[in-house]
Amino acid sequence: MVSNDVVIAVKGLNKWYADFQALKEIDLDVMKGEQIVICGPSGSGKSTLIRCINRLESFQEGSIRVEGVADQNDLLTLRRTVGMVFQQFNLFPHLTVLRNCTLALTRARGLEKAAAEDVALSLLDRVRIREQALKYPGQLSGGQQQRVAIARALCMSPKAMLFDEPTSSLDPEMIKEVLDVMADLASDGMTMICVTHEMGFARRVADRVIFMDQGRIVEAAKPDIFFEAPRNARTRAFLHQIL
């Protein structure tokens, strides 16, 4: 299902935190409908990379283009075009699940309340949590909260989704429900970049797996090649550690 249209184009990206270079010469094209999994040791720059894509982080050199956004400096349009799911869910604790989902629709898209709730409910349905719509985030389990966060991002009908270690703060028994929702999303053809250490998920879902270390993309390959015959020694060492 991967087409030749580039949705996200990263070229020559360099980022520094003061003296520390967090990203070095990153080049990455993400095609429409493609699912990319990024892995790597902590501090390798993988989260920084996807946070640069929707400009939660700024960068000093290079460019990131998101297809369909005419002016890349228009942060609001850019962020409304790319959805993001965080490690810590970041649901708004003072709002119901439903309101968490409709907030951006009414405030940013200007939808009527009823129309926004229709959209939100259908997406909550899709992540199989519609019956919890009127509860508050604090009343849900971690896995349920993360599924709400996914629905919240989907409400804006994003062209691509960014996942920043979506299962890292979940109890083991809840990881599957979140990964299943993500796999569904992938099979529906959503363009996704996913930072995760869930290698089973990568094998099953990813079109490409990327390994990052010390701010560089060290290896990028189809999952079967990536896992069976990684070319780089550091990739091998990393896979050996976590598999």
Partner: peptide, 30 residues
């Protein structure tokens, strides 16, 4: 307030004033 709250608002494409008004202030008031 958790920094992630503001980031989540940004990621949804909300403007800074909207984030202050709909996300930060209501939680602060409590």
């Amino acid at each position: 307030l958790d920094r992630g709250q503001v980031e989540a608002g940004f990621a949804l494409g909300l403007r800074r004033p909207a984030i202050l008004w709909t996300i930060e202030l209501p939680q602060m008031v409590r």
